[in-house]
Design a protein around this nucleic acid. Sequence first.
DNA 1: ATTGGAATGTCAACAACACTGACGTATGTT
DNA 2: AACATACGTCAGTGTTGTTGACATTCCAAT
Lengths: 170, 170
Amino acid sequence: MSDTRAPSPYSGESLLFLTDEQLRQGIEAMFFAYRGFTADPDRILSDMAYGRAHHRAVHFINRAPGTTVNNLLNILGVTKQSLNRVLRTLIEDGLVESLVGKADKRERHLYLTDKGKTLEQSLSDAQRARMRSAFRDAGPDAVAGFRTVLEAMMDTEMQRAYTRLKETGQ
Amino acid sequence: MSDTRAPSPYSGESLLFLTDEQLRQGIEAMFFAYRGFTADPDRILSDMAYGRAHHRAVHFINRAPGTTVNNLLNILGVTKQSLNRVLRTLIEDGLVESLVGKADKRERHLYLTDKGKTLEQSLSDAQRARMRSAFRDAGPDAVAGFRTVLEAMMDTEMQRAYTRLKETGQ
DNA sequence: ATTGGAATGTCAACAACACTGACGTATGTT
DNA sequence: AACATACGTCAGTGTTGTTGACATTCCAAT
């Protein structure tokens, strides 16, 4: 499995970027970057009684207002018990509204209240500021590559979820 | 803070890639990709009494054999109590060896045992396989962009740690 | 030689966030 | 009427992180 062989030509291009050392650097870059990625919203959240899980829920409810609990469950990839704990506090605190479905009354449709939108905005602003700075420093070509690699790294179900969200957004 | 203005020309190139929508897609890509990134090692670890924290410790001990506890602490960005719990189980289970420093006897130098190397290898193989597949699909230019953006997204201290590790490796 | 500080380890308590399993209620579908 | 779906909840457990307090060992400076 371990690919320590010397680089060899393959369909006309160098495969230097696929050496174990390159892959390990990619792995470490992913680890360190993800820390930066979550650092700013984490700082904001630590002042409240909320954590990263609340951020994720609020983000995706804002992204797809009226989404059902089941939908959110699939996107977040957690158990309903875990999500429910988070949703309960968000609803109690008046950040999220849960409305019984019209067509199917078993479903609950989730919306951010104004208060919820305010929190989402402050978290998003912090996270976007870092992403914007990174994107600007790296330039459009690097950003395109960044997204291509990330997409290829997802599980296929998550690729679908990601693509669906992309299309929703624009 | 929120950058919703229409794209405008800036030093000759379009800034379309810096719209809020593009940034949000980048954020979501990061979220979904990180799930994929950790999925394979997590599956292996869930069969044992270990978790992601053990993976990280084992990874960086393997990367820099003989590293001190303090060193590892800085790289991982957790408290000594948190790391200690993980290290203790790894040492008890004979995956990691802790040797008192020769020059400074307060320091403990950490090494993987053969058993530890075996686990590290199996975790790395799983994670590298996904990274390799993603890199191959995306191609060398995308990979370069991927790493450029990730590096720009790190905190400056982490950039230094990352660069140091890169130079160590090759 | 004593003192101060650094590196490490350990104990206890706690919180966030994930999991499994089981159960209940309301609603929809066949 | 029987079964499935969507959601919520209770109880228990595990990993990983946190603070705070305290002990030990050792280096280095006064």
